[in-house]
Amino acid sequence: MKFIKKIISCIKKRKKYKKGSYTSIILKDRKYIRKKIAEEAFEFCCEIKKKPNKKKFVNEFCDILFHSLVIFEYYKINFKLVKKEMIRRNNN
């Protein structure tokens, strides 16, 4: 989870201090973020349909993860809730 925390910290910093960065720009547009998550999920699913190229498979997953973390920041939802839910599911 340390690397997730680093990514979240980077998203927060770019939102606050790097006004022209890709992250700060997309954080102003919920519809764009939603579109990017859908687009990246589609590309990821396309990789699943065939024998995946490992590099592309990992890259597409990273894109989904990044944009998902951005939408968490957009809605000010603490990612710790995901960890808590995953632990709950694992214990059932």
Rank of each mutant, 00 (worst) to 15 (best):
K2T: 07
F3G: 00
K6F: 00
K6S: 11
I7A: 07
I8A: 12
S9C: 11
C10G: 03
C10V: 03
I11N: 04
I11W: 02
I11V: 07
K12L: 11
K13E: 12
K13C: 05
R14I: 02
K15L: 13
K16V: 09
Y17E: 06
Y17R: 05
Y17D: 04
K19V: 00
K19D: 11
G20T: 07
G20F: 11
T23L: 07
I25Q: 05
I25C: 08
I26Y: 12
K28P: 06
D29M: 09
D29I: 06
R30L: 10
R30V: 04
R30T: 03
R34H: 13
R34M: 09
K35G: 14
K35Q: 14
K36W: 04
I37F: 00
I37P: 10
I37W: 04
E39Y: 11
E40K: 09
A41Y: 08
F42I: 08
E43K: 12
E43F: 13
E43A: 12
F44V: 04
C45L: 13
C45A: 09
E47W: 00
E47I: 01
K49M: 08
K50R: 08
K51T: 01
K51I: 05
K51M: 05
P52M: 02
P52K: 06
P52I: 06
K55Q: 10
F57D: 03
V58L: 07
N59C: 07
N59F: 04
N59D: 11
E60D: 10
E60K: 05
F61H: 01
C62W: 05
C62G: 06
I64D: 02
I64L: 01
L65R: 01
L65E: 01
L65Q: 01
L69Q: 05
L69M: 14
V70Q: 00
E73S: 09
Y75P: 03
Y75M: 04
K76A: 10
I77D: 02
I77C: 07
N78V: 14
F79M: 08
F79S: 13
K80G: 10
K80H: 09
K80E: 15
L81D: 12
L81F: 14
V82M: 11
V82C: 07
K83V: 15
K84N: 14
K84V: 13
K84G: 09
E85S: 10
E85Y: 13
E85K: 15
I87M: 12
I87F: 13
R88M: 10
R89P: 03
R89L: 15
N90I: 03
N91V: 11
N91T: 10
N92C: 02
